[in-house]
Every structure is written in structure tokens, then in C-alpha cells.
Simulated scan of single mutants.
Amino acid sequence: MTTCVSPPPSLRPRRPQRPRRLLGQNTDLRRSGVWSWTLPALATRLPDGRTVRTCPAAGVCSQACYARSGHYNFPAVLARHQANLAYVLDDLGGWQRQMAAELSHERFRGGWVRVHDAGDFFSDHYLAAWLRIIAFRPAVNFYCYTKEVARFRRLVEPAPPANFRWVYSFGGREDHLIRPEDRVADVFPDENAIHAAGWHSQDENDLLAVLGPAPVGIPANNIPQYRRRQGSRTFRQWQAELDARRSEGRRARTPPPGRLKDAL
């Protein structure tokens, strides 16, 4: 007769802890009555050692990202955002069902949910899951800022849900894919710079990014080191400068056609 001995509690595999609530409100979004879903900004190393890039198309924005400073770095806040990401990675179907169930609550009916206070649509599967949730909850309105231009061209623009709005935000590696007819947002040094450029600030209410006049200007956050890095440029101008330097560097490293033939 074989006796089964259970391993001590410390050695038993633990079921991952899932967030009890998926949506929250930060101070700024609460003013507008907006709920949000959040991931770690740019990239993170999860407790199990996995490194995940949550903003694949990020460019210069990563050098002045509000979600990489302040309370976002508090251990409890970071742990919560990492738990959100782990849930998506390890149980996308379970996360989708829980999100859809949470959105059935009456408080969300007719309201607005911002997809990503930090982070972005880092994979096709993840974006597709959000599109299913959005379509399943037509009584709730959803919006986002995104730099995943190519991904949205393929997966969203052909048949967008009626209750989903988005704005392409400058400062990413796919800025060159943005078209004149797209709704866009750019980060300016301050409110005066926004008005001088003839753009429209969303500072009073974040929903102006998708409901107000376009193009949309965002005043830079008052974080001294980020403001110094940005200087008097917008994110669009900053990214264009970086892209131009990289292009020049590639040309400098490429030998002229005649010299290439000689080498062969």
C-alpha cells in the first residue's frame, strides 16, 4: 500500500493571487468621473523573473513618462500593476471574464473607462481581448491614448466598436505612421505653448482628448528632470529630432554603392 504524503505548506505551489478589482481611479481621472485600467509603464520585471515590455512603440516619451515616477514607483502600487500584468499574461481568458463581469456594475453604465493610465496594447492577443470586452459592454464608453499605430491600423480601424475612441499620441517609434486625418495628441512644455500652436488643451478634463476639439495638446507634467529633458520641444518634435539623428547615423555607416562594389 502506497502512502501519499502531502508536501509541507511552504513547498506547495500557490495559486496566483488575482486582483479583486481591476478598475480604479487616480486623482486626475476622478475629477472627470473616469475609471481606468493600469499596467506598469514601459517595461517591468515580474517577481517570477519575467521581463515584459508593456509599451513596445515607446520612443522619447519613455524619457519623460509621468508613470515612471512618483507614486507609480511605490512598492504597493508597482506590485498592484505587476499583478494586473501577470493576470493578463497567465490567464487572459480569466482576466477577460472578470473585467467583463466588473463592467456590468451599474456605476459604469454610461460612464467612461480609460484603457491604460500607464502601459499600452503590447500584443495582438491583448488588444483583441480588449476589443471583445468593449463590444460585450456597449453601455460603457472606452477610450485610450496609444502609440501602437500599426497594431491599431490592423486590428481596430477596420471595424472599431461604436463605444471605443482613441487618440494617437506623439513621442513614439511609430510617429511616422500617423496620418493628417488621425486624431492626435502631443505633449507641450506648457499651456501657453499649446495655445500658441493653435492646439487644444485637455488639461481641464481628460475626456477632451477624445471628445473635445482636435488636435489635442497635453501640458507637460511638473517633474523638474523631465521638463529639463524636454526643453521647449513637443514630444513630436523631440521624436523627429531623434529619428533624424538615427537616420543620419545609419547613412554614415552605409558605404556608398561604388565603394561597396570595390569591397566585393
Rank of each mutant, 00 (worst) to 15 (best):
T3A: 01
C4R: 07
C4H: 07
S6H: 08
S10Q: 03
P13F: 09
R14H: 02
R15A: 13
R15K: 12
Q17A: 10
R18W: 04
P19R: 13
P19N: 10
L23F: 10
Q25S: 12
N26P: 09
T27G: 10
G33R: 10
S36T: 11
W37C: 05
L39G: 01
L39N: 09
L42F: 03
T44M: 14
D48L: 05
V52Y: 10
C55L: 04
C55Q: 06
A64K: 14
Y66K: 12
A67C: 05
N73F: 04
V88S: 09
L92E: 08
Q96D: 03
R97M: 02
M99C: 08
A100L: 04
A100T: 12
E102P: 06
F108I: 05
V115D: 00
A118H: 01
F121V: 02
S123A: 15
H125L: 10
H125Y: 04
I133A: 02
R137H: 01
N141S: 15
F142A: 07
C144Y: 04
K147D: 07
E148F: 00
V149R: 06
R154A: 09
E157I: 09
P161M: 03
N163H: 12
V167N: 10
Y168Q: 08
R173H: 00
R173W: 00
R173Y: 00
E174R: 00
I178K: 08
D190V: 04
A193E: 11
A193C: 08
G198D: 06
G212Y: 02
P213A: 08
A214T: 15
G217N: 09
A220E: 12
Y226A: 14
R233G: 07
R233K: 14
R233H: 14
T234M: 13
F235D: 07
F235N: 13
Q239P: 02
A240W: 00
L242K: 03
R245G: 00
E248D: 08
R259P: 01
A263R: 11
L264W: 04
